[in-house]
């Protein structure tokens, strides 16, 4: 069965997420990150942030809602039973703070076959309410036995 590549170049609707301090607190608690800039507004401002700041990997929280519809798009035809998360890359820009409204736009960069596996490479770009880019992400999913 040939790999379906119809979705290459496709973009999906942008997803908005408003950053809340209690979600940041939950995230840093489970990750064991104890820097006060993530929970205390005064400490964050003293360190030069606009407000309580999210750790870089909080990106998974505000961009997950953008990636959901991508993976379930019939045009992508993702075989979840044989799928693994193969790789991930983030490039961070402006810090993300409590109260920010982050807009994430996903697109499909490439779908290709290599060594009997299907590689699905998606990109997301997230910007804040001022239009400043906060992250550029590349998500690679691998499907065995294509």
């Amino acid at each position: 069965m040939a790999l379906k590549t119809d979705a290459v170049g496709k973009s999906w609707p942008a997803f908005d997420y408003e950053i809340g301090r209690e979600k940041i607190r939950e995230y840093v608690n489970v990750m064991g990150i104890d820097n006060p800039v993530h929970v205390d507004a005064a400490a964050a401002k003293a360190a030069g942030f606009r407000n309580i700041v999210a750790p870089p990997m909080f990106v998974v929280v505000y961009s997950a809602g953008a990636m959901g519809p991508v993976l379930f798009d019939p045009e992508v035809e993702m075989n979840f039973a044989a799928m693994v998360h193969g790789g991930q890359e983030f490039q961070w820009g402006e810090p993300v703070c409590s109260g920010d409204l982050i807009t994430t736009t996903p697109s499909c960069k490439e779908i290709y076959e290599k060594d009997g596996k299907g590689f699905y490479v998606f990109e997301t770009v997230s910007v804040n309410q001022d239009g400043a880019q906060v992250v550029h992400a590349t998500w690679t999913n691998i499907v065995r036995g294509v």
Partner: peptide, 12 residues
């Protein structure tokens, strides 16, 4: 410092 990490690329 959360500003220090500019990029991270991994393979699972």
């Amino acid at each position: 410092d959360p500003r220090a990490l500019k990029s991270l690329s991994v393979q699972f």
